[in-house]
Amino acid sequence: MSDEPWHQGGEPACMLHLVCPACGRVRERPGSAVCEHCGVRLAEETVALGDETGGRARDRDSAGRARNARPRDGLGRPLPYGAEGVTRQPEGVVRSPEETLREAQRLLDAGMPFHAHEVLEDRWKASPDDERALWRALAQLAVGLTHAARGNAKGASALLSRAADGLAPYAGASPYGVDAAALVTWARARTGGRDGILPPPPLHRR
């Protein structure tokens, strides 16, 4: 997870941390101090957004792993330290593919796509190499929905496009019942930023 203070949460699976907070586009050079798309200096944007850590030492969980403890709202947006936030999904939970899909779907149905992406990321981290692209794409789809619900149409479009690209190779296979073909069709129809907050088809055939 990035140490940069503008970081909004997320791991490389979903690229939530690579979305520029100013223009909403996915940054291709995350180490740069300037967004290559809109030219905003990220140091200036940090001041506008507020420092994630508030000058504190970096948060870590009970195992010593970096884990931002700042409270967040229902869409994963950081709140001031001390505010009452929405409980995040526990990190590192080992679930079967079927359990992952059920829990992610439950959270999507409840209007909590940020939390769904955390569940899908847990599976991405735990899955064998030949399945990681599938879970990464599903996590990206959940992040696209998160950006749409936050009102960030550009970020939603960028992530849904990447999710569609990642799911396309599975369209004829439907691993674990994932309806990849329907999800690709839905995501591609919304990469222009229109209707981005509409719920997608179910992640898997029930």
Rank of each mutant, 00 (worst) to 15 (best):
residue 172 G to L: 00
residue 148 A to F: 01
residue 87 T to P: 06
residue 59 D to H: 10
residue 176 Y to C: 06
residue 92 G to P: 05
residue 109 D to Y: 01
residue 192 G to Y: 00
residue 133 A to N: 11
residue 168 A to E: 15
residue 13 A to W: 13
residue 44 E to Y: 06
residue 84 E to V: 12
residue 124 W to K: 03
residue 190 R to C: 06
residue 21 P to M: 05
residue 139 A to P: 05
residue 76 G to F: 03
residue 121 E to Q: 14
residue 149 A to D: 08
residue 124 W to I: 02
residue 120 L to A: 05
residue 129 D to V: 14
residue 133 A to Q: 15
residue 31 G to Q: 07
residue 192 G to Q: 01
residue 66 A to N: 02
residue 129 D to C: 00
residue 95 R to W: 11
residue 197 I to R: 14
residue 97 P to I: 05
residue 154 K to T: 15
residue 175 P to K: 11
residue 74 G to Q: 10
residue 110 A to K: 03
residue 67 R to G: 01
residue 194 R to L: 14
residue 133 A to M: 13
residue 3 D to N: 12
residue 118 E to W: 09
residue 26 V to K: 01
residue 182 A to Q: 03
residue 55 G to Y: 10
residue 14 C to I: 04
residue 75 L to C: 07
residue 118 E to C: 12
residue 133 A to W: 05
residue 196 G to C: 10
residue 28 E to M: 12
residue 23 C to K: 03
residue 193 G to H: 01
residue 204 H to V: 15
residue 111 G to I: 07
residue 120 L to M: 06
residue 155 G to Q: 04
residue 200 P to W: 00
residue 155 G to C: 07
residue 187 A to W: 04
residue 132 R to N: 04
residue 1 M to I: 14
residue 27 R to C: 08
residue 21 P to E: 05
residue 78 P to I: 09
residue 32 S to H: 09
residue 86 V to A: 14
residue 13 A to V: 11
residue 100 T to Y: 02
residue 60 R to H: 15
residue 78 P to V: 09
residue 79 L to P: 02
residue 192 G to D: 15
residue 34 V to Y: 06
residue 58 R to T: 10
residue 54 G to Y: 09
residue 170 Y to Q: 01
residue 6 W to E: 10
residue 62 S to D: 15
residue 74 G to K: 00
residue 32 S to A: 15
residue 4 E to T: 14
residue 61 D to C: 13
residue 120 L to R: 00
residue 146 T to A: 09
residue 108 L to S: 04
residue 192 G to R: 06
residue 72 R to A: 08
residue 130 D to M: 07
residue 39 G to M: 06
residue 186 W to A: 11
residue 84 E to P: 00
residue 22 A to S: 13
residue 180 A to C: 12
residue 22 A to E: 10
residue 149 A to P: 00
residue 152 N to R: 10
residue 121 E to F: 09
residue 40 V to F: 02
residue 152 N to C: 11
residue 177 G to A: 07
residue 91 E to L: 12
residue 67 R to Q: 11
residue 130 D to V: 14
residue 123 R to N: 03
residue 106 R to N: 09
residue 21 P to I: 08
residue 85 G to E: 04
residue 146 T to P: 07
residue 28 E to T: 15
residue 86 V to F: 06
residue 41 R to D: 15
residue 113 P to C: 06
residue 20 C to L: 10
residue 19 V to A: 10
residue 98 E to A: 15
residue 76 G to H: 01
residue 63 A to G: 11
residue 138 L to Q: 03
residue 112 M to F: 09
residue 10 G to D: 07
residue 73 D to H: 02
residue 151 G to S: 06
residue 120 L to E: 01
residue 41 R to N: 13
residue 94 V to T: 12
residue 154 K to D: 14
